[in-house]
Design a protein around this nucleic acid. Structure first.
Lengths: 190, 190
DNA sequence: GTTCGCGCAATACATATGTATAGATCGGAC
DNA sequence: GTCCGATCTATACATATGTATTGCGCGAAC
């Protein structure tokens, strides 16, 4: 494995373990077993490397989301809503640091335009994907209204429940409780 | 005003503007117009001051939540669900940095037991407050099941929608869209 | 008016940090 | 065998950072 890849891997590890702001070039270089200057050579700066590592982490997070949302293997293309939430919560617990990466993006996006754009794009994509899946239609056939309502709310719910699971898994709601709460709230909304 | 309070105020300002990790003792001391040593004298360390400042910011955030959730001034103790969401979204846009402080708590809690406990406690309190308000019962009469379902889900939805509003206000859902999405999701949950 | 201790300012200190520079190593082209 | 460019290592450098130390001003007690 080349040093370039080793650095990227090390950056991802540091990101998962210590977060963006607490990862130094020395941490990364040491973890990769190379010199600091290799970072400058391959990536130009700490930020550039860290951003690239963050993007790759977010790709892996996307895979985690994909696993959770993919229709069941039993062949039924339409997925039970509760089973989906169970898969989601299973992914929260299996890969907490990948999900945390999305929060890291949110925090860093406040002061980095590149990350801000990535976040906006990812959010839009997430909304659309959620809405399409839940409505059972292709992504390019989701009505704008559905996108802004069901898509946004499902996405918001996903991040909110994730936060609770990352904060305190024991107190966070189960899939059944999410559905129950959803029904309770919807009754107030009618 | 004493320097002790000036330091705390300055720390809060720095926290709102630059976040926890990017606030140095020099930033705070300069903003307060005092010497760095005053931080050591009054608070012992950067972390101690920053944690105290974060807690005060979270108190102010609690006030913001309170304003959004308090029943309308028209005397009706039962509050319209949609009006509540409108107030919430108004608070997101009016005081984004206060709401961001709750995310800062979440991020910092991962490596600080004191903050972790505060987060767990605050989350529990939030769940209970939400559930009580929505069910229209006193906080000590909320059934455990309601707490874990409606309380958790409303809290999750609140943080999730907040994130979207802080990321990209234009693309984030309105109150009406939140309710519409809620109804759509609840239909899948039945 | 001397003493005393609180509340600081000035600053020293050690360490951490991001980046730039200079030179070594190594593979291949010729 | 020499040249050369890519890929680094070692390290220098300037700056940033958290904390500890030293001492000064000053109001109160006596």
């Amino acid at each position: 494995m080349g040093n370039r890849e080793a650095l990227l891997d090390a950056a991802k590890t540091c990101l998962r373990e210590n977060g963006y702001d607490r990862t130094s070039v020395r941490d990364i270089a040491t973890a990769a077993g190379v010199s600091m200057a290799a970072i400058g050579y391959h990536y130009g700066s700490r930020e550039a490397l860290l951003n690239k590592a963050l993007f790759e982490l977010l790709d892996a997070w996307g895979d985690s989301v994909g696993r959770a949302l993919r229709p069941d293997a039993d062949g039924s293309s339409k997925r039970h809503f509760e089973a989906m939430w169970e898969s989601l919560i299973a992914e929260f617990t299996a890969h907490p640091d990948l999900w945390l990466a999305s929060m890291e993006l949110f925090m860093q996006a406040r002061r980095n335009p590149e990350l801000r754009d990535a976040l906006a794009g990812g959010t839009a994509e997430g909304r659309r994907g959620m809405a399409a899946m839940l409505a059972g239609v292709p992504e390019d056939e989701v009505p704008e209204a559905t996108l802004r309502s069901v898509g946004s709310v499902q996405l918001a719910l996903m991040s909110g429940v994730m936060i609770q699971h990352l904060s305190d898994p024991a107190a966070a709601p189960t899939a059944a409780e999410v559905l129950e709460g959803l029904r309770g709230l919807a009754d107030l909304a009618r």
